[in-house]
Each structure stands twice: as structure tokens, then as C-alpha cells.
Design a binder for these strands. Structure first.
Lengths: 155, 155
DNA sequence: ACTAAAAACTTGTAAAATGCAAATAATATT
DNA sequence: AATATTATTTGCATTTTACAAGTTTTTAGT
């Protein structure tokens, strides 16, 4: 049994451990500027920030969330003053989502914090290893984008 | 601005995309042998399978779940006939968790399915790239284990 | 133009998941 | 023997979730 086969056997294991650890990282992420939001809400804010004037439907698709659950989450974020809903003049069925000033602030704080966490994790590697890992993750993302079993909604 | 700096800026982005995509993969995972379990329950089963006679506390810690929530999830899995709780003779406060025959069967089915998904994702890469990605993930796991900001409970 | 179908979003409702506080039971410490 | 600690459970209130059914607006069919 060669090394490559051995690695393939453990595929799920290493990915399970990795994703769970990132889940833990993520959990720490969600108190910023006196506001306490949930993990899901932080993902929503991240996605609204990343996309250009997305509709409710578009963000729900990107996060693979049930549209009704998402609708209510957006309502909560609007109540918290972090997100705005603007009706689209050309098609009045559609609402465009955007971050308020406070929402942008929170997004920035969380983003900085997550990057700091990641930098700390990467600080245990050499320059060479760091580059390899970053390239590997990018490669993985590209492969998942090509994959039929998952992930199509994400850009 | 050199390439390395540019990559560091996008650190959170590439990890966010990656973990979300694996989340999607994971979501597909949970119907096996006529039984329908939740994502959380599949993680619990995975962890019980992986550890050697773990206690309730140990698995809850490994998954970073609230112990009371976990206690109830275990009760559900026992009711579903997938998990067994055995009192430990040496210390009768402690219950040891194990999978029933059906639980093991489900664990195997999900494991196979996840590995198939992963193989499909990896099929879009060259042999060389595959090895690089696997090594990178292993490296990342080691770095996260060393990190102070997350992940300590996991082996 | 008129009607039917579809698309985007919301609300009703019921079930499941969550987590804090408090309880129970067993073991460890003093 | 009394007290503290550990492992687990239960009470309870809140949050999250998702199916079904609703409203409103746009698109398609004839």
C-alpha cells in the first residue's frame, strides 16, 4: 500500500477535523461593537458585504438557506440596525440588501478578527508552508466549484 | 505589493468559501438506511465512532457543544437506536457512549458517501495537486492544534 | 388584452435546537 | 463527616428552522 492510497483513505477524517476547527474559530467571531450576533447572522452580513446589491433570494441561495428562514433572519438584522432592505424600482417583487453604517462596522471588526485568528494559525508555519496551504485552499475551492456534488451556488 | 501580501489579504475569504462549501457537502450526508438524522447528529456519531469508549462529557467537549444540549441529542440518538449509553462501573457518574449495530452501519454509509464526494472533488485535480492539497490540510490541522485561538479540544 | 403561471417575498404554525439555571447523584477532598 | 467537585439530567424560555399557504408583482401563453 503506497502513501497516496493511505492518504486517500483518511480523506474524510482530515477534512472533518479541519472544518470542525474552523467552525470553532467562527464561533468566537460574533461580538462586535456591543452587538452580539449569531454565527448565521455573521455569514449573512459577510455575504451581503461581498456581493454587489444582492437580492434576498440571491443571498439565501448563496448560503443555501431556506428562503423563509432567511427572510426572518433579515428581519432580525434590520431590527438590529445592521441591514437595509431597499425595494428595486424595476421589479417591485425584489428587495435589495445592503449594510448600514453600523453593519459595515461590524463586518469590518469581524473580518479583522478572523484574519487575526488565521494569521495566528499561520504563524506556526514557515513561509513556504504558508504559500503551499494558501495555494492548496484556492485549488480546492476551484475544484469544488467544478464539482457536481456541492457548492454550485457560491461564486 | 507582492504576491504573498496579496494572498494574506484574502485569507478569510478563501477560508470562508471553503468551509461554507464543505458545509454544503455535509448537508447532503444524512440519510442512510431509511434513517434521517441531522448534521449535528452525524457529527456526534462520527465522533463516538472515532474515539475509544468516550464519555458523554468527552464527546461534548470534542464537538464544543453545550453539555445540556448534547445530553438531549444523545437521548434522541438512543431513541433512534443508533447509540448506547453504558454506565462505567469504576465511576458511576459516567456514561460511556458506543454505536449500536445500526449506528455503526449508518456511520459507515455516511463515511463512504462523504469519501465519494471528496473523491469527486479531487478528481478535478492532477495527482500532484491532490498530494499537495492533502499535505496542506494536514499541515493546517497541525497548526490549528498548536494555535491558542481555537481548536484545543480536538485530537 | 386576459388569464394563467411563475417568481420574490412574507406569515402561520409546529417542531427541533439551544443554553442558562438548577437539580441529582457519585466521587474526591479536607 | 462535611464540603467541594464532577458528570449528567431536567426545567424553562428563547431562537432557529422549515413546510404550507398567503400576498404582490411580473412574465408567458393564447
Amino acid at each position: 500500500m503506497n502513501q497516496e492510497v493511505k492518504q486517500m483513505e483518511n480523506l474524510r477524517e482530515i477534512f472533518q477535523i479541519m472544518t470542525r476547527r474552523f467552525g470553532l474559530l467562527d464561533k468566537n467571531c460574533c461580538t462586535a461593537g456591543g452587538v452580539d450576533i449569531s454565527l448565521v447572522q455573521s455569514h449573512i452580513i459577510y455575504e451581503i458585504d461581498r456581493k454587489h446589491n444582492p437580492s434576498i433570494q440571491q443571498v439565501a441561495d448563496a448560503l443555501a438557506m431556506d428562503i423563509t428562514t432567511f427572510s426572518r433572519q433579515v428581519q432580525s438584522l434590520v431590527k438590529l440596525g445592521l441591514v437595509q432592505k431597499t425595494p428595486l424600482p424595476e421589479d417591485r417583487r425584489i428587495y435589495i440588501l445592503s449594510l448600514t453604517t453600523q453593519g459595515k462596522y461590524i463586518a469590518t471588526v469581524i473580518d479583522t478578527q478572523m484574519n487575526d485568528y488565521l494569521k495566528e494559525v499561520f504563524s506556526h508555519m514557515s513561509e513556504f508552508e504558508r504559500d503551499m496551504v494558501v495555494n492548496a485552499i484556492k485549488l480546492l475551492n476551484e475544484s469544488m466549484a467544478k464539482s457536481s456534488v456541492c457548492c454550485t451556488p457560491l461564486g
